[in-house]
Design a protein around this nucleic acid. Structure first.
Lengths: 192, 192
DNA sequence: CGTGTCATGTAATCAGTTACATGATTCA
DNA sequence: TGAATCATGTAACTGATTACATGACACG
């Protein structure tokens, strides 16, 4: 009944769709699952090895012309069983750690311009991906009737999109609040 | 120029307000900073030791009648300098890992009722803290004109609040979408 | 008399990133 | 020729949690 890392279930989840190599897995996380999960090679390869050791996946070599061999992993029946059992366990609360908020919260002795800069940087980063998000929304919604998988992908994406818009809104609001704040004569202690 | 863990800055930030013991620090994170940071004892105490070793804080024993001694840590000038320097470094992108979304995303072979249950559980958890959040909003806003610290706390809280409302909204929306979905005749593959 | 709070800490373990190593091919 | 992509992997390290140990007092 030991609690297990979600990482291996993330891999099993992907492999439950189709056999993949570690490289493919990384690709998938970096492209389609950017807004909900991330893994590094240094974590993927050892995890695959561990899954193999537990008999949850099998490995076979796929030779390629002009390219390095691919080690393709396939989920086993035991792997699927283990994966489905995951859904029986309660969802652990996410660990909340926002470095940006931390900085803001403790930043009373830092010039406000630094904070403004920080928020603006975030804002501009978000703005850049906005069209991409908006386009994705359409695609996800259109596809959502096609299959169970697409339907779930849409629901999943929706949260990511909501959170995205929410952050964007906060940036604007925060900058506004800072701007129209009665700046007043800044009191300064003689010596902290 | 080595990148350093945000944890030690979280501790320095708190100590920049006032001297505290490890126990106090944990309390503070668990109560006031619940929505933006978390730390365990097993991480706080060793981190304090490390800060002490680097001369960023000092320690003194505070004897108490009927209670165990408190080890109170005070930030040093070097500690403040180190803390302020943190603001010169770029904010690293947060690691995104939502186990709930992961489960949903890969849950095509899981009965929809399981997913509904999961979302509902989240929803009810959020609903329970809703009045608390709403009340906090008022207090934070009212206090925000009092001092720089309160102002920043308000801005910080605002993001937490926004994200909270956003999650709530997503739960409702997701449940709605699932409900009014044309359930249709579920196609089933003969053998995967 | 049991539970909860106050208070500190360590050891074992797990989780996860970064940097490095290798080596062929393709594209500008 | 140099960079990018394909592809796998290890070692060193940092980060962080959990479980455990200790012990006194207060509250019901």
């Amino acid at each position: 009944m030991a609690k297990k890392s979600a990482s291996q279930y993330a891999l099993l989840g992907l492999l439950s769709w189709e056999p993949m190599s570690g490289y493919d897995i990384k690709k998938h996380f970096d492209t389609f699952l950017k807004f909900l999960w991330s893994e590094s090679y240094g974590h993927i390869y050892p995890t695959l090895k561990r899954l193999l050791g537990k008999g949850l996946v099998t490995k076979h070599v796929e030779r390629q012309a002009g390219k390095p061999d691919r080690l393709v992993y396939t989920i086993t029946r035991a792997g699927r069983k283990e994966f489905y059992a995951w859904y029986q366990q309660p969802v652990p609360p996410p660990r909340i750690r926002s470095e940006l908020l931390l900085r803001l919260y403790f930043g009373e002795n830092i010039p406000m311009s630094v904070h403004i800069e920080m928020v603006k940087t975030l804002y501009h980063g978000l703005i850049q991906v906005k069209p991409l998000f908006a386009a994705s929304e359409k695609t996800f919604k259109e596809n959502s009737t096609k299959s169970e998988r697409d339907f779930l992908a849409y629901l999943t994406f929706l949260q990511g999109y909501h959170l995205f818009k929410c952050r964007l809104k906060w940036c604007q609001e925060a900058l506004e609040i800072i701007e129209k704040r009665p700046q007043g004569p800044k009191k300064k202690k003689s010596r902290p």
